[in-house]
């Protein structure tokens, strides 16, 4: 207990407080700081760019989550009903998880490269045009596809873990009742996997909301800021050594993420009221 709290304190709480502190200063160097109060916050909140980036980040998260969660759950459901081959499918979907983040965008770029990429050649051959540098819709599709490729494994593995916890007897009972496939999913599987799925959704929400590396590498926020997400604004500030505004932006991002995580927690609590409160772990007191 103690060692983990110490480490978390050093690498987590102290920097967080420091960022909070910096957000009220105009920093030239660390020794020359001027108190500016809430100036950075007011600047950010009143700029239309902030809201546009915010909207894009939200949209991206929603799209990515919808695609990944539905695909991941469907896949996990299929895998859970397979024989020993399930190990290979799980290993397969886990593969993209171990690719370093800054390599992913590059791998996809070379894949769809018109001259040398496998997919790129296929597109040219079939007469399809992909122009992710200048067509915002293509950029968006590419980003979603890449993000799905990268993270489908995580959703699948966690959802699969949920499926394996369902006793065989439940399915037999459903078969006797003549329950339809949809009913089986809605009333037997969904309540059982929501617990495992909730953490996957939470992780995916946060990571997609703060998507940075891929978005920057693919198109640096373009074309015409069509893929400028909140995190790109933030790293721009850091690269420009605008540490004060960067700190203020960090705090705002932090607040947004925490708020959503909190709302999400309340939602999951409501869902699982029959099962005991999963967050407070009341089912553990036996």
């Amino acid at each position: 207990m103690i060692p983990s709290l110490v480490i978390m304190g050093v690498v987590g709480i102290v920097p967080l407080l420091a960022a909070f502190n910096y957000s009220f200063f105009d920093l030239f160097t660390i020794r020359e700081a001027y108190w500016v109060g809430d100036q950075w916050y007011r600047q950010i909140i009143t700029s239309s760019r902030f809201y546009e980036s915010f909207g894009r980040s939200v949209l991206f998260s929603i799209l990515a989550l919808t695609v990944q969660v539905s695909l991941g759950v469907a896949l996990a459901r299929m895998v859970a009903r397979m024989g020993p081959a399930r190990i290979f499918v799980l290993m397969l979907v886990a593969l993209p998880l171990v690719v370093p983040w800054n390599m992913i965008a590059m791998m996809w770029q070379s894949l769809i490269d018109l001259k040398s990429g496998i997919l790129g050649k296929l597109f040219t051959f079939s007469g399809m045009v992909i122009d992710y540098k200048f067509n915002p819709i293509h950029t968006w599709i590419l980003l979603i596809v890449i993000d799905t490729w990268h993270w489908l494994g995580l959703v699948t593995i966690l959802a699969y873990a949920g499926f394996t916890g369902i006793p065989e007897a439940y399915y037999r009972a459903a078969a006797i009742d003549g329950a339809s496939d949809i009913a089986v999913f809605r009333y037997i599987e969904f309540p059982k996997i929501i617990n495992a799925l909730s953490i996957a959704i939470l992780l995916r929400f946060v990571d997609s909301f703060m998507i940075n590396t891929e978005a920057f590498a693919i198109n640096a926020g373009g074309p015409q800021n069509a893929t400028t997400f909140l995190s790109l604004d933030l790293s721009e500030d850091i690269k420009g050594f605008n540490y004060g505004p960067a700190a203020a932006r960090s705090m705002l991002s932090f607040l947004i993420v925490i708020t959503v995580a909190w709302l999400f927690r309340i939602w999951v609590d409501r869902r699982s009221d029959g099962d005991g409160d999963i967050f407070t772990g009341t089912e553990k007191i036996k």
């Binding site: 978390m8 690498v11 920097p15 967080l16 960022a19 946060v206 700190a247 932006r249 960090s250």
Partner: peptide
């Protein structure tokens, strides 16, 4: 436990500067 999970969901970019200084 929830506080610990909060740190998992904190975007790393937002902590990068103070961590560097520290």
């Amino acid at each position: 436990l929830l506080l610990l999970l909060t740190f998992r969901v904190t975007p790393p970019v937002s902590l990068s500067l103070p961590i560097f200084l520290l």
